[in-house]
């Protein structure tokens, strides 16, 4: 016969240690304080929502004048160019960076942390900050935007490529290292073919992310359609602004559909 202790039901809630309980209270207090200080209050909403509706009213209908549409078209093309060139260059640079940073693959041994830190730096600093930096150094325009996307892509792809390389099947690598294949041969002969679906997936996400980023880079002067949006708001041309916002929505939507299809194709 089983003892009483063996038959006792587990509690409905997990037991909390005093430390866990204190942590829970502190986190809860921080959340409540944050909401109290920065979340929109009912009073603010009561004032803001009618203003928003008024602004939306002034935005309608979107400007469809041929001259404006033509200018917007070329800005959209420039936005795509920034995203595409930045992503492709970024991907190409990400591959060696990831190889140097990947644990168990890198030829740098313990020094692999150096490229890893650079990748982390590129990823953690927001793209608008990079854009400000490049606008200050190479001037206003698309080149600053492209450089921003390159850095952003290295930060994103560098990390995911390195993780994919670390997770690549070790058995073929060991088999070819045993016959004297060097690290570069193992990379090109085994690792890259093995992780190709993951590389394509990350690259398509990077492209999608770059298109989204490149539409707002213009807000700080780094080229693309975002620059038109800033001008429209600065000059109170709200009908132009609504047309640009719609165009941005369409660009991002098309990009998502295209990358989703490509992802399925390459799986």
């Amino acid at each position: 016969m089983s003892s009483r202790a063996e038959r006792s039901l587990p509690g409905r809630l997990p037991s909390l240690s005093p430390v866990s309980f204190t942590m829970l209270v502190v986190v809860g207090a921080v959340i409540i304080a944050s909401i109290g200080q920065v979340a929109p209050s009912p009073e603010k909403l009561a004032v803001g929502v009618p203003k928003l509706l008024d602004l939306l009213g002034r935005m309608m209908p979107p400007n469809t004048e041929p001259a404006f549409m033509q200018r917007m078209f070329w800005r959209i093309i420039e936005t795509f160019q920034i995203a595409l060139a930045g992503t492709v260059i970024g991907i190409v640079l990400s591959l060696p960076m990831a190889w140097l940073a990947a644990r168990g693959v890198s030829p740098l041994g313990i020094f692999r942390h150096a490229p890893k830190v650079v990748i982390s730096l590129f990823r953690t600093v927001p793209d608008l900050v990079w854009a400000l930096l490049f606008v200050s150094t190479v001037g206003l325009g698309a080149v600053a935007g492209t450089m921003t996307i390159i850095v952003d892509t290295i930060g994103f792809c560098g990390r995911f490529f390195a993780e994919a390389m670390e997770d690549a099947d070790k058995k073929p690598q060991e088999a070819l290292q045993a016959i004297g294949a060097n690290r570069v041969s193992v990379l090109f002969g085994v690792i890259l073919p093995d992780i190709m679906p993951s590389l394509i997936n990350s690259s398509l996400f990077a492209l999608e992310k770059a298109v989204r980023a490149s539409v707002v880079l213009g807000l700080v002067g780094a080229g693309g359609i975002g620059q038109e949006l800033k001008v429209a708001f600065d000059l109170f041309q709200y009908k132009n602004a609504s047309a640009i916002i719609l165009a941005i929505f369409l660009i991002v939507l098309v990009m998502e559909v295209v990358t989703d299809r490509l992802r399925v194709k390459f799986q």
């Binding site: 058995k171 073929p172 060991e174 088999a175 070819l176 085994v190 073919p193 093995d194 190709m196």
Partner: peptide, 10 residues
């Protein structure tokens, strides 16, 4: 080797 160690996607 016991495990063939081929690159599956090649």
């Amino acid at each position: 080797f016991q495990n063939h160690g081929l690159v599956g996607r090649q």
